[in-house]
Amino acid sequence: MNDMRLPISLLPLELNEVSFVHRGQTLLDRISLRLEGHGKILIMGPNGAGKSLLMRLCHGLLKPTNGQVHWASNANGKPPRQAMVFQRPVLLRRSALANLTYALGINGTPWKQRKPMAWQALDHFGLTAIAHRPARVLSGGEQQRLALARAWLLKPEVLFLDEPTSALDPAAIKAVEDAVVDFHRQGTRIVMSSHDLNQAKRLADEVIFLYGGRLIEHSPAEDFFSQPQTARARAFINGELVW
């Protein structure tokens, strides 16, 4: 899978005063931020802070109630290719292999190339042994790896991961984190949410800290963890905010 990935432009995504209101409740409140550069971004905050929502808005699964989400074009003049890995992987009711060839079919990969490519991805994620097993009976860790393999095949320029490890055991968490690093090494921009401080410290280059639907801090990881600017962030880092 050592294909060439286009370097993404410096300013792929800009959010301008984005709000999201559901049934009269403001779940995200006037968020403005720019995601740029190449580092891995972690969206942090306690439960209900709006992390998942923010990612869904960025990925285009939801439309903001107010404000704009603007993607800069990539070199081809299109918004960058994106993929998303969910907290609970959504896999189709077919074999692991078929889940991958299916995704390749959607993005227009010629029929003959699909299986070899899918096998490569399975191999890459250590899943060849379960290629013919139905995806839905795999363990949680295997399912999440399969979801990552699927994302891998789509060669995204930006990969969103919504708490991808929150339901996994330590070994599976390690595998997912390795995969994230792997994606990043291949040039994929990572945007991942987590409420796990240690995980964030391991992975983050950049941190977006949300609380109560508001953007509290957006800073390089080193700064965020060593000298948080706000009392809330400090409390979060010290484990004083219930998540």
């Binding site: 699964l61 998303m84 969910f86 959504v90 009711r93 299916y102 995704a103 993005n107 789509l154």
Partner: peptide
């Protein structure tokens, strides 16, 4: 309801979702 986000993320049109959903709902 279960598949929507994933299928949207994969960029599938509604028309193309029909065979996928019918097959996956086969039982």
């Amino acid at each position: 309801h279960e598949y929507r986000e994933q299928l949207t993320s994969l960029g599938m049109s509604k028309l193309r979702r029909i065979p996928t959903l019918l097959w996956d709902a086969r039982f």
